[in-house]
């Protein structure tokens, strides 16, 4: 069923990770991703993993949620792994059978890529688990607000993102309903040629678009009734404020990144 898809997978909580300034969280995640790609030793990556897993523990998000976020990306992981494993043909040969050659470099590169991607997913899902979509869009709006100078409509874009996030579940529900209704009228969406199937989507898309427009018109009216008049002079319920926590988090991350870079420089593993 369509409505089983979760988007905006915020997991409410009160942990220190939850309470970090979302702007800081975004900056930290960006730094973390950069670090992952700078690191080219297992030690470096290991430090990165310890860092992100530590943060995960602090957040109090159940561990199975982490596995859940990895699951849809399994095919990608396997694919990248195999690609590196099979197509890197330089270095010490570990295994050879007909045209299959697996080298030590292949194994390490594959392992590297997988660890990197896993760490990246864990890191970014930690961001979305601990930060509500509205905080995220808010943070993005603030981080990009200097762009207002060059006439980028930052507030409008952020507002659009918020509304999109708010309406995705509603529109998914709409789609579900319309599909059921057309199926009940004998619409056949599962058999036939590609062209026939594409045509079978018309009875779904037309009502969906019509209903989205209706919703948009009504929402605009409701927003006007609540004194919406653009971003000018707006205040926010939740002020973004950096506090001691945020500086501490910055410091901890900086220490880890330095550790990774140093580890690479010394390069005493491998």
């Amino acid at each position: 069923m369509l409505k089983d898809i979760t988007i905006g997978q915020y997991f409410p909580g009160k942990s220190i990770i939850h309470r970090l300034d979302p702007r800081i969280k975004i900056i930290l995640i960006v730094a973390f991703i950069v670090m992952l790609f700078i690191a080219d030793t297992f030690f470096g990556l290991g430090v990165g993993m310890v860092f992100v897993l530590g943060a995960f523990l602090l957040s109090g998000i159940p561990f199975k949620m982490m596995l859940k976020s990895l699951k849809p990306l399994m095919p990608l992981l396997i694919f990248t792994g195999l690609l590196n494993l099979l197509f890197i043909r330089t270095g010490d040969v570990l295994f050879k059978w007909r045209f299959l050659i697996i080298t030590k470099l292949g194994v390490t590169t594959a392992a590297f890529m997988i660890i990197r991607i896993v760490a990246l997913i864990i890191g970014s899902s930690l961001l979305t688990y601990t930060t509500s979509p509205i905080q995220l869009t808010d943070a993005i709006e603030r981080l990009f607000s200097p762009l207002k100078v060059i006439k980028v409509p930052v507030h409008e874009l952020a507002m659009m993102m918020t509304i999109a996030l708010r309406f995705i579940p509603t529109l998914i529900e709409d789609t579900d309903k319309i599909m059921s209704a057309q199926k009940a009228r004998g619409a056949d969406m599962e058999t036939g040629s590609i062209i026939k199937r594409a045509k079978a989507l018309v009875p779904i898309f037309v009502p969906l678009i019509v209903s989205s427009f209706r919703r948009a018109v009504e929402l605009a009216l409701a927003m006007e009734c609540r004194c919406y008049h653009g971003g000018e002079g707006r205040t926010r319920l939740k002020q973004l404020k950096t506090s001691f926590r945020d500086y501490a988090a910055l410091l901890v991350t900086a220490v880890f990144i330095t550790g990774v870079v140093l580890a690479d420089k010394i390069n005493f593993f491998i």
Binding site: A181, A184, V202, V210, S211
Partner: peptide, 11 residues
């Protein structure tokens, strides 16, 4: 089967 608010299925 006629769903609730069936007018939203017209296309």
């Amino acid at each position: 089967l006629v769903f609730q608010y069936p007018e939203y299925q017209l296309f």
